[in-house]
Design a protein around this nucleic acid. Structure first.
Lengths: 292, 292
DNA sequence: ACCATCCATGAGATCGACTCATCTATGCTG
DNA sequence: CAGCATAGATGAGTCGATCTCATGGATGGT
């Protein structure tokens, strides 16, 4: 039988590159590991690694086993953590996934009152997912997904939580500052700074520039909102963000929003959750609070 | 540590309802099970079942553990099966999920030449999924999803494999037989027979009747294509199916297709697969063959 | 009241997994 | 090329987790 320890061994050997090193972190002797591996290989009837000199090269089976380990072990760890929480009377951890960079600010405002209301619930926010946000929901890596792209499919439920307008952000001294709106071609000579996300997933591209066949003069990316806006304020480029976020920063930074297109770029943010969690009260309440 | 055997115990007890019965199928004595359970509960620090007389009622932790078991154990079983196939030099099993009832016929025609071309690959078809077809892909229950609803998300890839027209099927003696097309209101007095799927997921509803605000006189459902068409042929009602499928049956049944709406109801079928399987040759070849 | 059947428990047996000591192979270095 | 550090492999022996066996107490049906 394929046991948890086997997966842990495969994962750790992949991480460390050698049995000896892996033995250390697994709190076993090198000998024990060697025995275990030998037994597992004879059990499976196939080698897991090719021994090339003192290197261990995963075979096809080894690669596959590693993929299984990386997928299954986190589920078991999470299960143990949750059971520990049940045992200690805690309510659990609300694991929120974000697929919407600027929503982080919005989330922060929501989390404070939520934590006050649910003292026994912890909140954890993740932003990177092996198989995307939807995959993370299905894979029980997260319990709640903040995303602009809902997916109405069996097994999942999406609730709209707020509408906003995506606007161009320019320094107050910029030639476009004060314009009622901006058209795609007016950005052709600009340096556009965005979060480090594929352009086809950025609204300013897929709903504004790309349909018009326009590309900005240059496209750069920056991780954090603060730095990004400081770059804009200092005239290094322009960016696109939710209007509410820009208005917040505009009080202390030299930036101003401009409508994208004649009618503005209207967006909606959704919260996605598993239907099987419909009866988890502290989860539903988060959705309530987010909507309210 | 939460081990595989623990999950198996929880799952089996849930299935059988008693420790004694579960012990039997797990090839253990009742005593061993009792000991294991006791130890696990003390390890977790929480009870898994409430003992009510001679009944075992799962606690909240027990319910959760069962959900984990039902999710994780199939992944481990599948992994073992696949490793066994690696060991024996077989290529593996192509597990296909279907979210499109009539596509079954199309699939059958494709599978025969595929099996001939890949003698070491088995094909398995599933039609029921715990979390829907997409969930099954993400959860590694299936490797390939046949669906009319693609989902372009990171982690998954969807390939269109064929276009078809959804048509109304009526008996040749029907008043609509021979009409160039049919309008929604002309179905208001008909009995509509479909596969047993929620109306909002049926094209004839969500793309034809519902937008026009029309409902059929009655809506019934039947599992199998053959029986369904025999019902139609005998004048018990009408249905909606792909044109190619109807034309096949029309040679030996008293039925005829009619276009839905002035311009017909055009559909497309997609094959969905995980991006992480991009290098699995026998999987990619299936997509190739399906497209060709 | 009695019996069948459930789960719990203690004692003892058993088998698997771990450690220790040691061996061999590899690759680096002077 | 010799010497050394370090990798994995292996055999023997120990230890402990987990199993079985035997039995007890509780429950529910007849």
């Amino acid at each position: 039988m394929l046991e948890r320890i086997h997966l842990a061994i495969v994962q750790e050997v992949a991480r460390q590159g050698s049995l000896t090193a892996a033995a250390d972190t697994l709190c076993l002797t090198q000998s024990a590991l060697s025995h275990s591996v030998k037994k597992l290989e004879s059990l499976l009837g196939t080698a897991i690694w090719r021994r090339e000199g003192r290197q261990l090269i995963p075979t096809q089976a080894g690669e596959y086993l590693l993929a299984v380990a990386n997928r299954v072990l986190p589920q078991l760890n999470q299960a143990e953590e949750r059971l520990r929480q049940y045992a200690e009377g805690e309510r659990g951890t609300l694991r929120i996934g974000m697929e919407c960079h600027p929503c982080y600010q919005w989330l922060l405002k929501l989390v404070a009152p939520y934590l006050a209301r649910w003292p026994d619930v912890d909140v954890d926010v993740k932003q990177k997912f092996q198989f995307g946000g939807i995959g993370a929901l299905f894979g029980f890596e997260i319990d709640l997904l903040v995303t602009p792209d809902p997916l109405f499919k069996p097994g999942l439920r999406f609730e709209p939580v707020f509408d906003y307008e995506q606007v161009l952000v320019v320094p107050r001294s910029h030639r476009l500052a004060g314009a009622t709106h901006v058209l795609p071609r007016q950005l052709a000579q600009e340096i556009l700074i965005t979060y480090p996300v594929a352009p086809e997933r950025l609204d300013v591209f897929n709903q504004f520039l790309t349909p018009a066949g326009i590309a900005p003069r240059q496209h750069r990316s920056i991780e954090t909102t603060d730095i990004l806006l400081q770059m804009v304020a200092s005239g290094r480029g322009v960016t696109a963000l939710p209007r509410w976020l820009v208005e917040e920063y505009a009080t202390r930074m030299d930036i101003t929003p401009v409508r994208l297109g004649r009618h503005g770029l209207k967006k909606q943010i959704f919260l996605g959750l598993r239907e099987s969690d419909d009866d988890v009260d502290y989860l539903q309440d988060f959705v309530e609070m987010a909507r309210g």
